[in-house]
Computed example of a mutant assay.
Amino acid sequence: MITVYGGNNSRATRNVWVLEELGLPYEQKSVNFTNGENKTPAFLAINPSGKVPALTDSDGNVALSESFAINLYLAQRYGTGKLWPADPASQARCLQWSMWAATEVEGPVVGLIVEKFFKPEAFRNAETAKKFEEHFIPSLKRIDADLAGKDWLVGNSFTIADLQCACVINGLNMLRYDFTPYPNLAHWLKACLARPAQQKVDAMPRA
């Protein structure tokens, strides 16, 4: 049995999206940070960092943390021919895009969201927000150019590369970000978010 630790207001939704894409049975458990459940010996045995998401898979006695690493495990273990391509070059491109999303895009995107959405208005700084946006604009230009003339990032079908990148870039929709300058990116992101598995995840209660 696969168990995902983390509620639907966390990055665990990335892992749930993969599980829904693959049609795998799973259990999802919220972790109560308020009462210190994340610091109990039982949870620290799964993720010594005491954070979510985390995943256990009784088929192989696997315990993992970090949302992207969990997704890559699920794709490779259960998604060959679906989310995970068969040829080494395409597999490497899936890793490339996953690392790109994690290292080049997620940091400044999250920074902008915090600055413009989560911070009280009195503490927001327009100059700080501008710097975050300037940092990720080259990345948006890059993926927009890469998607010219094609539907998906790797090969002719939706893969883990698309899912990982869409998870990060979709955060900008919290800010009603204008993707007009990036038409290929906008078309691709809309297609990713319209997938039945993602629609199911999006409809889940954010408790």
Score class of each variant (00 low, 15 high):
117 F>W: 08
123 F>T: 08
131 K>T: 06
61 N>H: 12
98 S>D: 03
99 M>C: 14
147 L>G: 04
140 L>K: 03
136 F>P: 01
65 S>P: 04
163 L>E: 11
145 A>P: 00
80 T>F: 02
44 L>G: 07
175 L>Y: 08
140 L>N: 03
174 M>V: 15
119 K>D: 00
85 P>N: 11
68 F>K: 07
126 A>W: 10
167 C>E: 01
71 N>H: 06
130 K>V: 01
146 D>F: 05
84 W>I: 08
78 Y>V: 07
145 A>W: 06
104 E>Q: 14
164 Q>R: 08
121 E>W: 02
138 P>G: 05
167 C>H: 08
164 Q>E: 11
49 S>P: 05
74 L>A: 12
122 A>Q: 13
134 E>S: 13
100 W>L: 10
83 L>K: 09
140 L>D: 02
124 R>V: 02
66 E>W: 02
167 C>K: 04
137 I>E: 01
93 R>M: 06
170 N>Y: 03
88 P>N: 10
76 Q>S: 15
163 L>T: 09
96 Q>W: 11
116 K>A: 05
47 N>R: 02
141 K>V: 00
157 S>Q: 10
104 E>I: 06
105 V>I: 15
64 L>K: 09
161 A>W: 15
48 P>H: 07
81 G>R: 10
170 N>P: 01
140 L>E: 05
55 L>G: 02
144 D>E: 03
87 D>W: 02
134 E>N: 14
106 E>L: 14
161 A>P: 10
87 D>Q: 10
45 A>S: 12
175 L>V: 11
95 L>V: 14
100 W>A: 12
102 A>T: 15
51 K>W: 05
68 F>P: 00
142 R>S: 04
175 L>R: 02
97 W>K: 01
162 D>M: 06
172 L>I: 12
73 Y>Q: 13
59 D>W: 00
159 T>R: 13
73 Y>K: 13
71 N>M: 15
142 R>H: 10
109 V>Y: 01
43 F>N: 03
47 N>P: 07
80 T>L: 11
64 L>D: 12
47 N>L: 11
106 E>G: 13
124 R>K: 10
107 G>W: 01
117 F>D: 04
158 F>R: 04
158 F>H: 13
172 L>W: 10
59 D>P: 00
120 P>A: 07
68 F>D: 05
83 L>M: 10
45 A>M: 05
163 L>Y: 05
97 W>I: 03
144 D>K: 09
101 A>Y: 00
142 R>F: 11
56 T>E: 03
61 N>Q: 12
98 S>F: 05
143 I>H: 01
99 M>A: 14
76 Q>V: 04
153 L>P: 01
102 A>E: 15
153 L>C: 08
67 S>L: 07
83 L>I: 08
119 K>F: 01
94 C>N: 06
126 A>L: 07
104 E>C: 12
107 G>F: 06
122 A>I: 08
100 W>S: 07
119 K>P: 00
156 N>P: 00
59 D>C: 00
89 A>V: 11
126 A>D: 09
138 P>C: 04
76 Q>E: 14
44 L>Q: 08
43 F>P: 10
150 K>D: 03
163 L>G: 06
52 V>P: 00
117 F>G: 01
87 D>C: 09
152 W>H: 14
47 N>T: 01
78 Y>K: 06
81 G>C: 10
169 I>K: 00
